[in-house]
Design a protein around this nucleic acid. Structure first.
Lengths: 229, 229
DNA sequence: TACGCTCAAAATTTCGAAAATCAAAGAAAA
DNA sequence: TTTTCTTTGATTTTCGAAATTTTGAGCGTA
């Protein structure tokens, strides 16, 4: 049986990612202790762990908070996702076999099905949970054959913070109608094993979350080719 | 005054990075409790935190270990460093001003001084502590003007695990005579603000730690230009 | 010898409270 | 009125021990 610690950790992570606590809300140890009917140290332990994966802010002698939402933060997380996912996807193209293609196709099919339902109903909310899981699954499968467990673990950490930053109505939960076309384009690039195209597709897909463009090269490339970022 | 927790965390991190515990050694809570004359929970808290930054391995109901050394792990860490440092250095070139150039030059000067002493004496060991700090300082300054706190924090986490993997005589502590020339080349690329050259220099410098090459593109680039990785 | 079982020792997880620290409200001084 | 100091209440940090789980040695059986 799993340890209590681990259960509380998972549950708290889920609550944080789905935005149950508002941005910048203080996480009172006493309140959580009651929620889970456990001791103070257990709560503290869990909150510490969550703080090192960026889902909780910790300040010495001042306790724990759910992180603030900020354009700055969204920008940095998006940038990092682009960096990790383009790299991971391109490596998967180089290293992954037909088995990887197959899993990616399956993940895309599931996601595509949900996004089509969202489009026809025009309302994301009732499908938000399903969609979130499918979206994460698709993006994780995309980089799954990259050959680096470290890259994949790092990506999960960044992805979850990214999701946490976007779980409010104002930011549209990170959902856009263009997703359908863009996810399809990413799948196509994977099946064509075209790395340059993949970089462009992933970049376009994620850059939608930016309010200002990423910095471009400070001088023109000798070949006029756009850089990866 | 800093909290006891934080002090122990910093000290343990230092001990782990400098390889005081052997690879794969069990970290006994009771032993550490005595070392620091504190309670078991405090030790546990610290070890949990260290485990989420990869300096300690944690297994449910089985406690904490110093991580194993493996070629696989070194490979993945090197790969990740290349990814983060090329990106960070190129962004610094785009965004950093003369103030950044100046700090990088200063960091290089300090590092260069130490590496010259190592070369003439032929013995790294007495200067290992100094060199390590200077090396880290140089590489962190390199990406310091990248504009993303997230990228910098992620890099520190990766860098420290990388260092931890190399702190034994067999791996030469990650030191090579070629360092002098390579660090100089990186500085030059920065001052020339040449991003393509920077990618090549950083790549060459770090790839030295690899026992097998990184996967190349699966088909020739249209322009015959080598990719970032 | 090999395999499985039981039981005790060792280690980990969880607890609840004491000690230390911070924050807010109110009193005193400028 | 504004500023500084003090007290009190709330929160965080640290502790040491109880409860739980794993480890491994010893024993019996195929």
């Amino acid at each position: 049986m799993a340890t209590q610690d681990a259960d509380i950790f998972d549950d708290m992570r889920h609550r944080l990612i789905t935005g149950e606590f508002g941005y910048g809300t203080k996480l009172r140890a006493e309140k959580l202790r009651q929620d889970y009917n456990c001791s103070a140290s257990t709560v503290r332990e869990v909150l510490f762990r969550l703080s090192t994966v960026g889902l909780v802010d910790f300040q010495e002698q001042r306790g724990f908070k759910s992180p603030y939402q900020s354009v700055e933060r969204q920008h940095e997380l998006t940038h990092m996702r682009i960096l990790l996912e383009t790299e991971g996807a391109c490596l998967s193209i180089r290293l992954g076999g037909v088995e990887w293609e197959s899993r990616l196709t399956a993940a895309h099919h599931k996601l595509s099905h949900i996004e089509t339902r969202v489009r026809s109903s025009g309302d994301l909310i009732p499908l938000l949970g399903l969609w979130s899981r499918a979206e994460q699954e698709f993006h994780e499968t995309l980089i799954d054959a990259c050959g680096s467990g470290l890259l994949k673990r790092t990506h999960v950490v960044i992805y979850e913070q990214f999701r946490q930053q976007l779980v409010s109505a104002e930011t549209n939960y990170g959902y856009f109608p263009e997703n359908i076309r863009e996810h399809q384009a990413i799948l196509d690039a994977a099946l064509q094993r075209n790395e340059d195209l993949m970089r462009v597709c992933v970049n376009d897909h994620l850059a939608r979350n930016l309010t200002r463009p990423l910095p471009r090269k400070s001088y023109p490339d000798a070949f006029g080719k756009s850089s990866a970022i």
